[in-house]
Amino acid sequence: MTKIFAHRGSAGTHPENTMIAFYEAERVEADGIELDVQMTKDGALVVIHDETIDRTTDGTGWVKDFIYKELQQFNAVYKFAEQYDFCRIPLLEEVLQWIEPTELLLNIELKNGLIEYKKLEEKVIDMVRHYHLEHRVVLSSFNHNSMALCHRLAPEIETAILYMKSLCQPWKYMRAIGASGLHPYHGTVTESFVRQAHDHRVAVRPFTINKAGLMKKMFQYQVDAIFTDYPSKAKQLLNNQKTT
């Protein structure tokens, strides 16, 4: 059965990559949460998608140029300012501490395609191990060198490659770097592709699936999971499909 990952939390209804977005994902019974990790000037692992804080907060500047204490002053309510007063940029550790006693899965996307954060892989892996979440976490990135490194450092933690354009027999490529999951842009996903991937025992989890028609198509293809900004809608559609 296809699993539902709440993309940046319930990002369609709550401020993305904030604790309230993650709480909402749990409330609507998503199977897992997807989030993004960057690193601050003082080495803190923070949950934010962009390399800058310009889009999702009331501040400006590069995440890498702030210490975490400075980042705490910015409001990350994004486009939901009329609904919420103030949301902090959370620490990855804060999320892991919260998620550990739950049954939620977690996809951690390392945002190191533009900026090469030193020791990002090691720090994320150490933290995942500290909270004993090795078998509930998937590490992913558009930086495939990073995923190869993660596999060497922690072969017990699943890694997945993110990509935008069709790849020729990606299961061969991903095996070469130790990955076991494909996280493709949904436009590259066909039913035959999913079937071939499964024949090679490869998980397929496309992003970002927000429209009902596309959700139904992905469920029909029997993808392993989808990433969606609207986990509540996806769960309802999936449950309806199971009862018909």
Results as ranks from 00 to 15, higher is better:
residue 76 A to E: 11
residue 130 H to Q: 15
residue 130 H to W: 05
residue 117 Y to V: 08
residue 108 I to R: 04
residue 107 N to V: 12
residue 122 E to D: 13
residue 99 I to M: 13
residue 129 R to Q: 11
residue 125 I to M: 10
residue 94 E to M: 02
residue 98 W to G: 01
residue 81 A to F: 00
residue 98 W to S: 02
residue 107 N to W: 14
residue 128 V to Q: 08
residue 84 Y to D: 03
residue 122 E to A: 14
residue 127 M to W: 05
residue 77 V to G: 04
residue 92 L to C: 06
residue 124 V to N: 11
residue 104 L to F: 04
residue 107 N to R: 05
residue 75 N to H: 06
residue 85 D to Q: 13
residue 121 E to T: 08
residue 115 I to C: 06
residue 82 E to K: 15
residue 127 M to Q: 15
residue 85 D to T: 12
residue 133 L to V: 08
residue 83 Q to C: 02
residue 101 P to R: 06
residue 111 K to N: 10
residue 124 V to G: 09
residue 85 D to E: 15
residue 77 V to W: 01
residue 87 C to G: 00
residue 128 V to D: 08
residue 129 R to N: 10
residue 75 N to L: 06
residue 128 V to I: 15
residue 79 K to D: 11
residue 106 L to Y: 07
residue 121 E to Q: 14
residue 116 E to A: 12
residue 82 E to S: 14
residue 78 Y to P: 00
residue 78 Y to M: 00
residue 103 E to R: 08
residue 90 P to C: 12
residue 79 K to G: 02
residue 96 L to A: 03
residue 133 L to R: 06
residue 106 L to R: 03
residue 128 V to C: 08
residue 125 I to K: 08
residue 131 Y to D: 09
residue 134 E to R: 04
residue 125 I to G: 07
residue 123 K to W: 01
residue 129 R to T: 01
residue 126 D to F: 01
residue 131 Y to Q: 08
residue 115 I to Y: 14
residue 75 N to V: 08
residue 102 T to C: 09
residue 81 A to N: 12
residue 108 I to H: 04
residue 94 E to V: 01
residue 102 T to F: 08
residue 95 V to L: 15
